[in-house]
Design a binder for these strands. Sequence first.
DNA 1: CATGGTCATTTTGAATGCAAAACAAGTTCA
DNA 2: TGAACTTGTTTTGCATTCAAAATGACCATG
Lengths: 246, 246
Amino acid sequence: MEDVNLNQQPGEAAVPAATPIPRATLHDEVVGRLRDMIVEGALEPGIRVPERDLCARFGVSRTPLREALKVLASEGLIALLPNRGAQVTALTTADIDEMFPVMGALEALAGELTCARITDEEIAEIRALHYQMVLHYTRRELPEYFHLNQKIHERILEIAGNSTLTRMYAGLAGRVRRARYVANMTQSRWSQAVEEHETILDALAQRDGPRLAHILKMHLQNKCATVKESLEAEANAVSANSNDQI
Amino acid sequence: MEDVNLNQQPGEAAVPAATPIPRATLHDEVVGRLRDMIVEGALEPGIRVPERDLCARFGVSRTPLREALKVLASEGLIALLPNRGAQVTALTTADIDEMFPVMGALEALAGELTCARITDEEIAEIRALHYQMVLHYTRRELPEYFHLNQKIHERILEIAGNSTLTRMYAGLAGRVRRARYVANMTQSRWSQAVEEHETILDALAQRDGPRLAHILKMHLQNKCATVKESLEAEANAVSANSNDQI
DNA sequence: CATGGTCATTTTGAATGCAAAACAAGTTCA
DNA sequence: TGAACTTGTTTTGCATTCAAAATGACCATG
């Protein structure tokens, strides 16, 4: 595991503008990096990771690291067992069953708000994203498809213009992304998803808020089923001792 | 301001079971107490409160206090300005306009879920709470009314049986509570709220999920309007320099 | 009188140090 | 053999310490 010294300032100008600007404080930076590591699965759920190890990895002392752990715990990404350190929370199918309906309700609201505010230009923009996504679908390029898919949902949230809504949704989506990272879709699920996206675009273009809300809610329900199927398939394939967790 | 030493353990058994069990760790305890202080308005929004002061108040060192600040910041209750300390976030009418629709969407979902699961006994329980609340309404006992009102909403969330949903709702409700604390209702708003609660109870008893969802969404919209009215009235009454904040 | 600048003080951000709790390995005893 | 106890080590929770940034007072300059 490569060491990454956060308070590096040797090159200074050598840092390309592309790298996400190191946040003002160390603990903020650590929160971001740890969150990424967790989402990307670099840290196994349920396994104890001593603070010292993480400190060494990030090149910071325990103080900012511990602050970061507290924040991530309040977000639900990790669990803090008193006197026993932190561990990444395992995402069970029960958790998925809880989270997707909430995301569905949030996206439904976003759909309604967005229909009331969206401009013609924004509709055109989403249409472009949509057909780009469809292209990736016809080419069976799953990662690219996922990326565009996510971008469309993000854009709808964004246009809704409710930052509280966006923040809450992002919190859930971040946790779920870990599951969706490993998820594989069946062909029928995939084509179903694309069909639903057609109707999403249509409802958006017609600015039919209630219809879009309903479609999104259903769409999230289907996503939930897809993720769970894939999760269970994986669990069965891997072994019997794996306990529906990722 | 009275000092409250958190790591007290002189009496041990002397602590009555009524006091909320001191949490395992100091920082957890501090998070809880600070949150309460903020919600109850003991800390003015926008005013800088040095860490040392808070430490002295709680009788802890800066380490657990700072950890608590980070957590509350991630919840949105306070803002952390780098190198400039923390301050309670002011709740603007714009924030209220953002939060209530989200709470509405969450409660609507809770309503649907609850209708699908609620037992006869639980309906009876909520009915009891409801009529107790109505009693306080007829007696014009606002604080007691508020308490029962809140309890009914909490109970619906709880029966929905989705802990993620409950947690997200609680996060928003906590922030809004600060506003509702100071909010006064007009008579017409109050009677409207009670009427709406009648329909809530009715939809629950009939287990009509979609109807309950719709009612709750509307109910929250009206609550939003009520809070804003009261907030604006207050702002006008107090002075012109107050900037829609509490 | 206002504006800008220097320096002491305060306050924050992060590192280090210390005590208590958990852990692990060996040891005793049934 | 195996369960319970002991002891040394590790790890966590918190306090303290140190350095950098911000604040504020004072002074100089236009």
